[in-house]
């Protein structure tokens, strides 16, 4: 029913924009990753695999990448552990108060990421809220130093940030489960626990996958929380990229690392999408 002109008008402008501002930049990132920085601090457009060789051979790069993945994995796990039961409670037990609770989960998302990370800093610092509280009630004599400037602080903060994001798709998938399935299951003699593990959980897997992927991918690429709360032991891969694009001035190497992250993220999305298809039955 839509004329050719109509389809052209809606297709061409976004297509052009996406080409110029997404496709070409990714292509440029690809090109940069094969270029070099000369001794005179200019970028030389000569092609080599040197950056990738450096990535594999210099320990700090791949070790930091592994640490970032480990931090992201913990964030993902904790977000799921916090988010899933909450979603399950809201969807199945909260009754009429469901919408209110739902909005209560959303509201923290409207508070600036930066500000919430910073609030954790004021809580965890050596003369922060938590340490002074502990001393105030005489639980400790000296401030606990491990709280701030550690991977712990980074994981805690990122878990705080991504728990609502993990909760949302899980909640949505739980809400889409027809309630008569639960009734059918108990009618057939399944206990509540059996109903949960055999009916509800399997049907919520697409939501779990979406939430988990989101939390993992976005924590993996984070560089602000580590800068603010991570200290030297909490450095993540993006921090290295930031310094390569800044003071260290080695854009090509930074581009190579970014491209690795891009490939990693896209393949994760691919896997997650496959799994979700497998587990969605509608």
């Amino acid at each position: 029913m839509f004329s050719r002109a109509y389809r052209a008008v809606v297709t061409v402008p976004p297509l052009l924009w996406v080409t110029v501002f997404l496709l070409i930049p990714y292509a440029l990132m690809f090109c940069y990753s094969f270029w070099m920085v000369s001794t005179s601090q200019t970028i030389v457009h000569s092609w080599s695999l040197a950056n990738y060789r450096q990535l594999l051979t210099v320990d700090v790069y791949w070790q930091t990448l592994l640490r970032s993945m480990w931090i992201a994995a913990r964030v993902m796990l904790f977000s799921l552990l916090l988010g899933y039961p909450l979603a399950y409670f809201l969807s199945f037990y909260a009754g009429a108060k469901k919408d209110l609770f739902y909005q209560l989960v959303i509201i923290p998302l409207w508070v600036s990421y930066l500000v919430r990370a910073y609030a954790w800093k004021t809580i965890l610092g050596s003369d922060g809220v938590l340490n002074t509280l502990l001393q105030y009630v005489h639980l400790t004599k000296h401030p606990l130093e491990f709280l701030l400037y550690s991977p712990f602080a980074v994981v805690l903060t990122l878990t705080h940030i991504y728990t609502p994001f993990t909760f949302l798709p899980i909640y949505a998938s739980l809400e889409h489960i027809p309630r008569n399935l639960v009734e059918a299951s108990s009618d057939l003699g399944a206990s509540p626990a059996q109903t949960f593990w055999r009916v509800i959980f399997p049907l919520s897997i697409p939501g779990v996958l979406a939430g988990a992927t989101f939390a993992f991918v976005l924590s993996l690429g984070d560089f602000l929380a580590p800068l603010l709360l991570g200290g030297p032991s909490g450095i993540m891969i993006s921090n290295i990229v930031v310094s390569l694009f800044g003071a260290a001035y080695n854009w090509p190497l930074g581009a190579a690392i970014s491209l690795c992250m891009l490939v990693l993220v896209v393949s994760l999305l691919f896997v997650s999408e496959r799994l979700e298809k497998k587990w969605s039955f509608s």
Binding site: I24, P25, Y26, L28, M29, T213, F214, V241, S258, L262
Partner: peptide, 14 residues
Amino acid sequence: ILPGIITGLSLLML
């Protein structure tokens, strides 16, 4: 879903 750093850097290069 892409970490902002990748979007930011690719545009910076552009």
